[in-house]
Design a protein around this nucleic acid. Sequence first.
DNA 1: AAGCTTTAAGTGACATTGTCACTTAAAAAT
DNA 2: ATTTTTAAGTGACAATGTCACTTAAAGCTT
Lengths: 221, 221
Amino acid sequence: MELTNTILQLFPKLNEAVSKDGINILKHSQQITIPEGTTIFHQGDQCLNYLLVIAGSVKVFTRAENGREIVLYHISSGGSCVLTTSCLISSEDYPAEGVTETDVVALAIPKPVFEQYMGESKAFRKQVFHSYGDRLIKLITLVEEISFAKLDIRLAKYLLENGSVNTPIRTTHQALATELGSAREVISRQLKEFENKGWVLLNRGKIEITNHDALANLLAH
Amino acid sequence: MELTNTILQLFPKLNEAVSKDGINILKHSQQITIPEGTTIFHQGDQCLNYLLVIAGSVKVFTRAENGREIVLYHISSGGSCVLTTSCLISSEDYPAEGVTETDVVALAIPKPVFEQYMGESKAFRKQVFHSYGDRLIKLITLVEEISFAKLDIRLAKYLLENGSVNTPIRTTHQALATELGSAREVISRQLKEFENKGWVLLNRGKIEITNHDALANLLAH
DNA sequence: AAGCTTTAAGTGACATTGTCACTTAAAAAT
DNA sequence: ATTTTTAAGTGACAATGTCACTTAAAGCTT
């Protein structure tokens, strides 16, 4: 089956779980498609599946009382949702919300099957732990960046990671503010400065990089 | 043995692992004592044990290039070190450092024993996962606080959690800044404001709360 | 096509927090 | 009783966040 290969390519550790431990990933799990903009979990939700993202992307973020948001991380193909995984094991309230940014194809492994695999396959456990470790590192890195890095650096980094001279970034200043945990006005000001220096070209909903090296130079410190 | 009872009280899930799954926690693990101020891990360290903290406290923090630090979390009795746990499974570089804040008594479970327990005992897995989930939540909450909460609120919260009208807090402004991810001068200014309002009394290395309710009222928003 | 409506972005004044280059003062060490 | 170390204070300034708006572009609506 085509899907099997895709999955095993995306999740190399599962490959081992299948070949060494005889885990039949597909037998007791279900492929699901979730349309863009769907909230897949929020605070206090119960969770009944272990989710492996095959295609598309999920945005995980928190919201403050005053409405400000900050993106914690994205789950893209090859990633799994550790928050719902935690939920599977110790059922606590998670202070975050997950929304699909695009149509998402995922493999849903039901809780009892997940638990069985955890007991049977060392490779499966490794896969699960690996995603945990990954998230932990990403979150720690995020704390570090928020606390220490200046906004112009973080913004330049984002621009370089999400666009190039030929491929403009299609996003709003508001979305960027959420992504970086800042405020729209601050992002607008900073982008305007970049534009004045001739590093980017701004249009409603679109940012074009016009001087890659200058932006990269900011990061070089 | 006295120690067994202490451990099983601190880690209720392990209790189950012992009684239901016949795991002999003490047989293949070692009780260790680590003096105050010891670095138990930093970036890139290899880790050979799963650590359960029985007594004392470990501070986990990151350091920026310019020397500024922020405390990510503390591990106290009943906690385990998930960063080293991650390290046990997927060996990546962790962007954090762990230092004992007091003398620490810990149970060290060697990597092979840890892996065996993970395969054998559902309760043991639960214990491990539970600490992971906990950390994840704490880190997300930290991101939220750093991003959204004002410093006076966070400072007041810290003061109330770590002292009372009768028990002064023994710490420096610098340590407080690290704890909250701010700068010493900022903490000093804010504390001085609290003092001017008659909410605290400041002395070198000591902060006394003189008006609990006023501080608590700040939190109530 | 001209006018509404919605959404994105700009603006200036101001508050909060962080940085820098110091000074002052308390505690510890010799 | 000095010196040395460590903690805290200070003022000027820079960076970021907040507020209450305005302006402008893009999508609808008839």
